[in-house]
C-alpha cells in the first residue's frame, strides 16, 4: 500500500485561540451518531460556531477572509478528552490538512498522524506571531516543513516547529498508516502471543 510521502504541508492559516480545546468541542457527541465519517466536516466546532437557532456566532472558521484556510493554529493541550477519531476526521473533512499548537493530547495526536495530518508543536510566542501575521494577511501562505522541523511563511520568515520523530518519520516515509507493516508482522505477533501467555 503506497501512501503519499508527506514532507510538507502548505496552505493558508486560521487561528482558533484557547487552551484545552477538547474533542467534545471539536465535534459534539450528538454528531457521532453515524456509522461512517462522511459528512462530519459540517459539524466541526458546531456548538462554538452556531447559536441554538442555527445562526452563526462569528467563529474564526466562519470569517470569509479565512474561508480558504487549511492549517489551524491553536493553544495548549489541543484535542484533549475523548479518543474519538471523529475529531480529526471532522477537521480533515472540513478541509484542515495540519494543525499547529503549543501542545497536543496524545490520542488526538496519534489519530491525526495516522490520517496523514501533521500536528506541529510551536511555542506560544511563535504561534502568536504567526497568528498576527495571518490576521494582517489572511492570504499568507504557510508551509509546515516536516522534514526540517520548521514553519515558513511570508517572504523568508520562519518559526521552529517540532514533530516527534516517530510521527515525522512516518509522514516523510509515507508510512503514516501503519496497517501494511502491522500485517507484515503477523508471524512475530503469533510468536509474541505464545510467549506472553495468551
Amino acid at each position: 500500500m503506497a501512501l503519499e510521502k508527506i514532507t510538507q504541508v502548505s496552505g493558508q492559516g486560521v487561528y482558533v485561540p484557547g487552551s484545552d480545546i477538547d474533542t467534545d468541542r471539536i465535534i459534539p457527541a450528538r454528531f457521532m451518531k453515524c456509522v461512517t465519517f462522511d459528512g462530519l466536516g459540517e459539524y466541526l466546532f458546531y456548538d462554538v460556531r452556531y447559536n441554538e437557532d442555527g445562526s452563526k456566532k462569528g467563529h474564526p472558521l466562519d470569517e470569509p477572509r479565512f474561508s480558504a484556510a487549511s492549517i489551524l493554529l491553536s493553544g495548549e493541550n489541543f484535542g484533549c478528552g475523548s479518543s474519538r477519531e471523529h475529531a480529526p476526521q471532522a477537521l480533515n473533512r472540513f478541509g484542515i490538512k495540519a494543525v499547529i499548537a503549543q501542545s497536543f493530547a496524545e490520542i488526538f495526536f496519534g489519530n491525526c498522524t495516522t490520517l496523514g495530518m501533521p500536528c506541529a508543536i510551536a511555542s506560544s510566542d511563535d504561534i502568536k506571531t504567526l497568528a498576527a501575521a495571518i490576521d494582517a494577511d489572511p492570504g499568507l501562505e504557510i508551509t509546515i516543513d516536516v522534514e526540517n522541523s520548521q514553519i515558513n511563511y511570508g517572504d523568508g520568515q520562519s518559526i521552529a516547529a517540532s514533530i516527534p520523530n516517530t510521527a515525522s518519520d512516518a509522514l516523510i516515509s509515507g508510512r503514516w498508516d501503519p496497517i501494511a507493516e502491522l500485517i507484515e508482522g503477523a508471524d512475530k505477533t503469533a510468536a509474541t502471543m505464545t510467549t506472553a501467555g495468551y
Binding site: F37, E85, I107, N111, T114, P178, I179, L182, T189
Partner: peptide, 21 residues
C-alpha cells in the same frame, strides 16, 4: 489499558497489534 482511535481499532481488529510509543 488505553484508549485508541478508530483507525487503531481497525489495526487491532486486523492484526491484534498497533503502532505505539
Amino acid at each position: 489499558a488505553f484508549g485508541i482511535g478508530t483507525t487503531q481499532v481497525r489495526d487491532v481488529l486486523a492484526t491484534q497489534t498497533m503502532a505505539m510509543e
